[in-house]
Amino acid sequence: MQNMTLFRKLITVVSLITATSVLLMPSVVSAQQGQPTIEQLLQEPFLDDYYSNVVYGYEIITDTQNNASRYVGNSLNCSNCHLQAGTQKEALPLNVAGMYPKWRAKNGKRNGIGLRIRECFLYSMDGIMPPEDAPEVLAISAYVSYLSQGQIMGAEPEGRGVPTLPDTGYDPNPANGRAVYLEQCASCHGVQGEGMAGMPPVWGLNSYNKGAGMNDIREAAGFIWANMPLGNGKSLSHQQAFDVSAYLNLQIRPSDPRDSKFLKLLEHLIN
């Protein structure tokens, strides 16, 4: 007798679960299919707080100079490195929200997506580190989570970051890099690396500083090989990319914000 009631209960529970899942199924599927693109979002007449932050984040990424000028110290935009507003593979795509929080060797602590974005302002944009709850930071993290929809949590998305170039067997040669730069890059980035309208400066006081990821020879070489010259990526050899990267690394640019000016002055005085 007891077994019978238990059996009946089990059946009701199972049937309820199936019923609800059947009912919910179409909506789940349609939600995945109906994922709007940024262009669609821009045409919506009314956006709630999250989606308007996504759009604001998109506007910051594409026009950092005007939309997040508060914390920017040079004349770069986020989309100068995160090509196609962070949607292009192997060009530091922004669909990486699932990878955070994670430990990073750069600062030796657990990094949330917020801290990662704030450090970008400090190093690559050579500006001020925004506070945790700055509207700009929240908007960019909304945009990053929006781009990361459908990615697996914790797993590396396809084409994350820049490709790691294999060891060519030769040291990077800045002199050769200068020759390649003048031939391939100077027409857009300028002979003095000063950039021009729409093309970012790659060294000098208006470019990223010495703490930025791009100042790392391997990172910059991977980016240059995969994406440069713009629209004609992967045309340079690995060695050429390393050479150009080493040449850029030698140029003058803003100092690393992690250095204490006081200690620098002390060193200077002692020497």
Partner: peptide, 10 residues
Amino acid sequence: PLAGRGSPVY
């Protein structure tokens, strides 16, 4: 309570 601090909707 209606929107995130400083966001466009705010």
